[in-house]
Design a protein around this nucleic acid. Sequence first.
DNA 1: CTGTTAGCGCGTTCAG
DNA 2: CTGAACGCGCTAACAG
Lengths: 341, 341
Amino acid sequence: MGRAEKVTVRAVAERAGVAVSSVSRVLNDHADVSDGLRARVLAAVEELGYQPDPVAQSLRSGATRTIGCIVRDIANPLFGDIVKGAENVLHDAGYSLLVSNTDGDIRRDVDYIELFLRRRVDGLLLSLQAEDNADMIAALRQASCPLVLLDRDVPGLSASAVLCDHFTGIVAAVGHLVALGHRRIGLIAGQPVIRASRERKRGFDEALAKAGLPVAPELVRLGPYAAEFGHASTLELLDLADPPTALVAGGIQFTMGSLRALHERGVRIGAELSFISADDIDWLELHDPPISVVKRDHMRMGHLGADLLLRTLGGEAHPCFEPVGTTYIHRASVQPPGVSR
Amino acid sequence: MGRAEKVTVRAVAERAGVAVSSVSRVLNDHADVSDGLRARVLAAVEELGYQPDPVAQSLRSGATRTIGCIVRDIANPLFGDIVKGAENVLHDAGYSLLVSNTDGDIRRDVDYIELFLRRRVDGLLLSLQAEDNADMIAALRQASCPLVLLDRDVPGLSASAVLCDHFTGIVAAVGHLVALGHRRIGLIAGQPVIRASRERKRGFDEALAKAGLPVAPELVRLGPYAAEFGHASTLELLDLADPPTALVAGGIQFTMGSLRALHERGVRIGAELSFISADDIDWLELHDPPISVVKRDHMRMGHLGADLLLRTLGGEAHPCFEPVGTTYIHRASVQPPGVSR
DNA sequence: CTGTTAGCGCGTTCAG
DNA sequence: CTGAACGCGCTAACAG
């Protein structure tokens, strides 16, 4: 096993025949350094292969060049894309990314917040599981580093945010189904503790109202973000005496669960039921027939979030909001029974 | 914005009326501490809400309680599952996980290795992009922390590894296709710089040989792990004068690319072509008709890798190899043209 | 059993 | 323009 001799500033200083502070000056290019000294220091650095110790730098400076990222499920391609986009930007800026996995348990959000703050991260990228948890808000208030919320909205908190326009996407999706003649449209979405869920529900309601369609509470299922919920809800909707002819699923977990339920029942999308997913994941279109989606660019969201964080760290920006557009993409659908045109 | 007063050991010591070292003794339960002192220290800790600074602890102890993880694409659910499994185990053991994204560029493997080592991570989880890169091997030799390879094999390196049995899975898959009567079977897989690719090719060759089938070099495409390669290769195979009747794709990227190509061409899996993916991703089965897969439990691989790392760190284990089984799951297929039975 | 002291490696005051 | 000295917060020697 290789053993690298630990080469410190002191070693470099001795090698160059100067004081340690001079080495530090050169490396952090603090003005007023003579060319001769600079050259000798750089030569010594090169010869010894010196590299400053980030841990010592962190203790001294208070900055760790580390960002903490909190997401529900890093294996979920939605969050994977966010993390990937963020990591790309942060890496290029010299930051490293710590990840988490809160997995449906809101207390783990709090745990990770406290853990990352204790580790003195320079910033936090947050895709929280709920926006109204008191413990979580209290934990975030302790933060002395910039915070960026990813598609979340916690009022009264000093944080930036990257927000998606879910409303427009759902309105377009439902509008399209209505135009096809659907009158019984189901919605499976998350609980209102997350802005995305509220916006989806609001878009759903407004689109129906605009079309003069009645609200059918039994066709709306709001629950925890888990494939099991999407699965169970889809089965319940299919078992209704008067089942929906079209279904909008408001998150990738729900989409997964719903597709599995439809698959089990042998219900063919586009042939027997119109299905729209409110999160475009790359592979959804590969279904046969393809699934219609409301598309969001998750990598871009991570990208923007990291960018916002870096700009705040660099003092170039104060907390602000960055909107991310949403596009509705129609891929396949079917007219409801009894509709002629 | 909340401003937490930094409470140090010194503050706790003064509050309790003892020396700083006594505080340290109590917290790290170094033997020989009187109950009275312990109680007073613990009380002061509680009252002040003291929490040790991990950065200072790291500088002092040399350990950062941080693990670096190197993967090609964290947004890929395959790697996402690995990272998730590893993070779960590491978090419970008090470690945090730094992630990366090497994205097809082998030099980024080297960059991240050097970055993480400079940051003094306590261990490295490595899903490398090639096993034979000299710079990468040189970088890893500099490591003084334990290394765990994830489904990779770098001979001559002091590292543990979690390995999948790809061979058996591909043999089962090809064997099944042969039993159905297929005689022209295509393979899309990675280059031999990664053990997984070599094992898949070896399994493919042996299964064909065992069936007394000729080797058809034009049906085997080995290339970089990218959806584009799977896509282009699939189109090339379809365009052959004598195209394959069945296709085995040896990695999730290739599967993605191939499915997209088949979708574009309107080729129906199970109706016109048998398709087997060598990496089961949760959602593959949701295709209609379902796709046959060679299943691997990626989360378990991350789990085992992290466990191996922790055991090595705890001195409970020396570098070793942990095998992960592979299962072939048949979901749908089609007999080749001209086969009656 | 407990207190005093010396660094871990770095950046940054201050004098010269 | 350069060097000497201090301290970030903690742990581990070494004394008492």
